[in-house]
């Protein structure tokens, strides 16, 4: 949790479960984003819905509390170089972190397979 004292910054009632997002929403976001060019084949109305889902999944990622101190530490250090880059880091930190965890998981699985 954030180091902000006793005053209940950790009492958000719209938090999203990390494991739920990591195992379901995040893979869906990656797949739907990667396949987005295909949406041009299915008509503008469906493309609109596709985009809404992708944006919603992305916005959901911001509600996950995932190593917040590290996120703020990195963002505030980058701010000294570029406010825009700092904002970019802040917004995409959770996605980057989850992507790294998926790569790590994949590497572990592949390594185990190779060893077997």
């Amino acid at each position: 949790m954030l180091d902000t004292g006793c005053c209940g910054t950790n009492l958000r009632n719209d938090r999203i479960s990390f494991w739920g997002y990591f195992t379901l929403a995040f893979p869906a976001l990656i797949v739907l984003s990667a396949m987005y060019p295909l949406s041009f084949l299915i008509g503008s109305e469906r493309r609109g819905k596709w985009k809404t889902i992708v944006v919603s999944l992305y916005e959901m990622s911001k509600r996950i509390i995932l190593v917040p101190k590290l996120k703020l530490f990195i963002s505030t250090k980058i701010y000294l170089i570029s406010p825009v880059l700092s904002g970019f880091t802040f917004k995409l930190f959770n996605l980057f972190w989850m992507m790294s965890m998926w790569f790590l998981l994949a590497w572990i699985v592949l390594t185990i397979q190779r060893l077997i």
């Binding site: 954030l2 902000t4 910054t9 950790n10 958000r12 509390i65 917040p68 996120k71 703020l72 963002s75 505030t76 802040f90």
Partner: peptide, 8 residues
């Protein structure tokens, strides 16, 4: 998050 905003 209000805590993150305050820290920023």
């Amino acid at each position: 998050d209000s805590g993150e905003l305050s820290i920023l």
